[in-house]
Design a protein around this nucleic acid. Structure first.
Lengths: 203, 203
DNA sequence: GTCTATACGCCGATAGAC
DNA sequence: GTCTATCGGCGTATAGAC
């Protein structure tokens, strides 16, 4: 959300408030159930007009949210890719990040996991086509080449692995699990990794 | 979709056409991107007025679709539960059904997997609370009691298992996999089942 | 039961004062 | 840059003829 240069603060406060309010509402009620009036109120403004000084329209709010979330994710993935060697370590760090986000910034995780982007922003790239997720895909390709991951279609490995991870996160976000997401991290990681790892430990 | 008694046919033809058109459009563009005019055209009617002879409003179309799909699913689950004994066999039959639906009636699978019901029909039961999915949940409870499935939270077992299954189906529906869903059934079933099975074969 | 025509409301968006 | 007031359009829904 901090894609702007660090101005003395105060200038872009309102824009930030609008984005945060919109994120919360979109994640909770969905894009189409959220009116500009809703966002106005949630952002503490008195008139929808205030929004038009920062964004061309409602659509532009969603676009900036989407880009900003994926930019930040992309930076995090870069950090992970830079510091780690093995595919297992890289994936583990990504899973850590996702579980942490689910607990600490659930709206962001909801935005990523629950909203159907192509329904809201048909002209934007689909999730899987964004830089961040292409890099994740490459980790699977690399893991297969290096022998850490079984020799299957990397697309499938990706789908199996994040099928387990994301569905667990979805349950946590929906509140069907009693503890916070982080409590399920170790066991879920093991499940997902052993699913695709070559030398799956039989425990 | 055949929740009406088998009348001589002709009477409920229009209603059926409307439901099928709506299903297709909702699955493709989403509920909010679909106007009654869209449904009118797709159903081969000349005026939106025709719809109001069969449904109170747009909302009622979605409700009937949702109920009808889940009723049919519930019946199928009943059949499966009646004829099978082991949890593995029952789950295998359900997975077969889902993969078959993904290939033969993709709109139904899209409706179930992609649409966020609580965003469209907030007053309706969530998927997990419907009869069909409660019965599926009970298969996991049973499998754990009978020793087929590991001793973990049945909710988690359910989530892990269908995380793999549903994500594979999602990929197939999104067209990121080159073959039809059915081609991935055997391997995906094995993956998902071994993930939760007690005596996981190490292959 | 299906058409034509039309009413109504909400919400996104604009004009213009301050 | 934020307010008050207002427009315009789309999409749901209704009235009423046939």
């Amino acid at each position: 959300m901090d894609q702007e240069k660090d101005t003395p603060a105060g200038k872009h406060d309102t824009q930030e408030k609008i984005l945060l309010a919109a994120l919360r509402l979109f994640a909770e009620k969905g894009y189409f159930n959220t009116s500009l009036t809703d966002i106005t109120r949630a952002a503490g403004l008195k008139s929808p007009q205030g929004i038009y000084h920062h964004f061309a329209n409602k659509h532009a709010i969603a676009v900036m949210l989407y880009e900003s979330i994926l930019d930040n994710l992309n930076v995090s993935i870069d950090d992970i890719r830079r510091k780690q060697q093995s595919a297992a370590d890289q994936l583990r760090d990504i899973v850590d990040l996702f579980f942490r986000l689910a607990d600490e910034a659930p709206e962001i995780m909801r935005f990523l996991l629950l909203l159907r982007i192509e329904e809201i922003l048909p002209e934007q790239k689909k999730l899987a086509e964004t830089a961040a997720f292409i890099k994740i895909y490459k980790i699977f390709q690399y893991g297969i080449r290096s022998g850490e991951i079984r020799s299957i279609d990397p697309q499938l490995a990706n789908g199996y692995f994040f099928g387990v991870i994301n569905n667990t996160l979805r349950m946590a976000l929906d509140g069907v699990l009693d503890k916070k997401a982080d409590a399920y991290l170790p066991q879920t990681w093991l499940m997902a990794w052993n699913l695709i790892a070559k030398k799956s430990s039989c425990f």
